[in-house]
Simulated assay, not measured.
Amino acid sequence: MRDPYAILGVRRNAGQDEIKAAWRSVAKAVHPDHNQDDPLATQRFAEAGKAYELLRDPVLRSRYDRVRREAELRRMEAMKQKMRGPEPAEEPIDAETAEEAISRIFGVEPQAASTSSKPNPASARAADKGDPPADMRPEAAAEPKREESSRFDPLVVRRSAAPAADLVAAIVRRIRDRVAKTAEKVPDLAVDVNVSIEQIINRARVSVELPDGETAKLSIPSGAIDGQSIRLKEQGYRVTGMARGDVVATLRVNQEGAFRTQGINLVTSLPLDLQDAVLGCEIVIETPNGPVAVTVPAWSGSDKLIRIAGAGLRGADGEAGDLLVELRLMLREKPDDKITDLMRSLRHGLYL
């Protein structure tokens, strides 16, 4: 079965009323009686019915959402393995590599060649005279060699630097592993966040329910508008071996109340009876920003739009939008005989 949310065309956080309304709309559109020329109409109608039965039941819907989240996490894990490829075998760092690393970091020269390869000046002079070298003389064999403490022995330095080389090698491996882990990042998670106009005005801090069951906090920024995206760093999916992804939250401002938004402008409708529309009036209306006086000019019809500057939402730059008042001409609930006679006389050209 396909995604039931996609079949009904609703969001994943849709309420039961929205799901029921979507089901009625889809069922009416794909009903076989209205699509007799479509051989797949019956199949689509049955598919929509199954989707509605699943989403209307809280238990089945919760179970489906959990299974879908687990499948998505498995897909992300498989994608991560495909992106990383086979794990390369870690090459051991031998003593020579460690010495080279410590030499580069601390400026110690590589181990010098054996001192036996360097010519001895005294031996060279003896060779010129035809005498055997000093270290080959008989008395030299009986006399033990004395260490010259005043001379620099590179072998001593090498022995003392060996533990530091191992430490540096461990640090290098740690940095290498960390770079490899942070080089890849989990893709962003996109979610919709439903907010009210009051929350936009008060810059409220709202909760964002994530598909994996966690909850993140989102602070509405100044000048936020419907459809604006806000990025929450490192609060998305977790996948082993990859940097945690971000959450990209899109604000969806509730447009079903008395006021709706157009950017930072507020839009509302003002019903008028025939008398106020013809003669004009002044009405005080309540807005999310407080009461506002609206002056209706005489002879105003339903095509009239009254703009009140500065009575809308506040933008990111501190400037406020406008309040757009759409006039709607309404008749009284009960018929008025005087108005009826007046309209009849105007139609037939009669004067009372």
Rank of each mutant, 00 (worst) to 15 (best):
A6R: 14
A6Q: 13
I7N: 00
G9N: 03
R12M: 06
G15I: 01
G15C: 01
Q16Y: 10
D17Q: 14
D17A: 14
I19K: 05
V26F: 08
A29R: 10
P32D: 06
P32I: 04
D33C: 05
N35K: 06
P39I: 05
R44Y: 15
F45A: 13
A46H: 09
A46M: 14
A48K: 00
K50E: 14
E53V: 05
R56D: 12
R56G: 00
P58I: 03
L60I: 07
R61W: 09
R63D: 12
R74Y: 10
A78V: 08
K82A: 15
P86F: 01
P86K: 06
E87L: 08
E87Q: 15
P88E: 04
P88V: 01
E91I: 11
E91Y: 07
I93P: 08
I93S: 06
D94R: 01
D94F: 01
E96L: 12
E100L: 11
E100V: 14
A101P: 02
R104M: 11
I105P: 08
G107S: 07
P119R: 00
A122Q: 13
S123I: 04
A124W: 14
A124G: 09
P132R: 15
P132G: 11
P133F: 08
A140M: 07
A141S: 11
A142S: 14
E143V: 10
S149V: 06
S150R: 15
R151E: 12
D153S: 04
A164E: 07
A165R: 02
L167A: 11
I171L: 13
I171H: 12
R173H: 09
R176I: 07
R176Y: 07
D177V: 02
V179S: 09
A180M: 05
D192N: 14
V193P: 05
V195Y: 02
N202A: 10
R203I: 01
S207C: 03
S207F: 10
E209Q: 15
L210M: 01
D212S: 08
A216W: 06
G223Q: 03
G223Y: 02
I225W: 05
D226R: 08
D226F: 01
Q228M: 10
K233L: 12
G245N: 00
D246G: 04
V247N: 08
V248S: 02
R252I: 11
N254T: 14
A258P: 08
A258Y: 06
R260H: 07
T261R: 04
T261F: 06
Q262P: 02
G263Y: 00
G263Q: 01
G263R: 00
T268F: 03
S269P: 01
P271M: 05
L272C: 05
L272T: 03
D273S: 06
L274M: 13
Q275R: 13
D276P: 03
V278S: 13
L279G: 09
G280Q: 01
V284E: 15
E286T: 11
P288A: 02
V294S: 02
P297L: 08
A298W: 04
W299M: 12
S302N: 10
G310T: 09
G310Y: 13
G312Y: 00
R314E: 13
A316M: 12
D317W: 04
D317F: 05
A320I: 10
V325F: 00
R328D: 12
R328N: 14
E333T: 11
D336A: 07
T340Y: 07
R344W: 09
Y351A: 07
